[in-house]
Amino acid sequence: MSKFIPTEQFKTVVEYAPLISIDLVTIYQDKVLLGKRVNKPAFGFYFTTGGIVRKNESFKDAQKRIAKDELGIELTQKPKFIGVFEHFYYDSIFEDISTHYVNHGYLLELDKELKNIPQEQHSIYKWFTIKELMNSNEVHKYVKDYFKFKHNRRK
């Protein structure tokens, strides 16, 4: 069973340790779903849905939780592993503390377009072609990393 970390302990973890996280690169009909972040880090940028892996939570359970919390769906398929990426931010949800993620990217291909997507982490959602997101200044550079290398792209 996964646990929430009380705020003061979580602040210490963010300050002194990398966080293990998962991003779901969600695709429908050759377009990628990105949401405009409402929290730090990456505030104001379009980003994939994702989150940290909690203590005693498997990657599979974390994927299911993130899909439910951030996309509003029950995960019925196994997302395809893209790779491990490092994300370094000068800020975090805490004042004057940077964030370091060891991020595991997963491709989630949908068979239908999503409606009524939760807006706790992202305020606006938009579907981007890969070309559009690669050329947009509003899309965070770490999202673009998922599409830079041929072996990471969909076939």
Rank of each mutant, 00 (worst) to 15 (best):
I66E: 08
K31I: 14
F128K: 09
N152Q: 10
T49N: 06
E138F: 14
G35D: 00
N103W: 02
E8D: 10
T26G: 08
D69M: 10
K36T: 11
D23F: 00
L114K: 05
K112V: 08
I22N: 00
E95P: 11
H122R: 12
T76G: 08
H151S: 15
Q119S: 12
K3C: 04
I22F: 04
I27K: 04
G72A: 07
K126V: 13
R54E: 01
L19S: 03
I117C: 08
L19G: 07
I27E: 03
G50P: 02
T12E: 07
S58E: 13
P6C: 10
F147T: 01
K68V: 13
N135V: 05
S92I: 13
I130R: 03
F4L: 15
I52V: 15
T7F: 14
A67S: 13
S21A: 04
Y125Q: 00
F43E: 15
K148L: 08
I52T: 09
H122D: 09
F10S: 06
D96W: 06
H140E: 13
G51V: 09
S2M: 11
E74P: 08
S2C: 05
Y90K: 15
F59Q: 07
G44H: 12
Y89S: 10
E138R: 14
G50N: 03
F4Q: 13
R65L: 13
E8Y: 06
T49M: 09
P6R: 14
H87I: 04
E132F: 15
D91G: 08
A67Q: 03
L108W: 02
F85N: 03
E132Q: 15
K115W: 10
F59A: 04
S92F: 10
Y142K: 02
K64N: 04
G44T: 12
N137A: 14
F59L: 15
S123H: 05
D145R: 03
Q119L: 09
K78Y: 02
E109V: 15
P18S: 01
V32D: 00
D96H: 15
I130W: 03
V143Y: 00
A67I: 07
V13M: 09
P41W: 06
H151C: 09
S123P: 06
I130S: 06
Y125T: 00
F94T: 07
G51L: 05
K80D: 14
G44R: 01
D145I: 02
Q9T: 10
F10V: 14
R65G: 07
F147A: 02
Y46K: 03
L108T: 03
I22Q: 05
G50D: 06
D111I: 10
Q9I: 07
Q63I: 05
L107Y: 07
N116G: 13
L71V: 10
T7L: 10
V139L: 04
G83W: 02
E74N: 15
Y101N: 00
Y46I: 06
E109L: 09
I93D: 12
K36Q: 15
Q9L: 13
S21W: 00
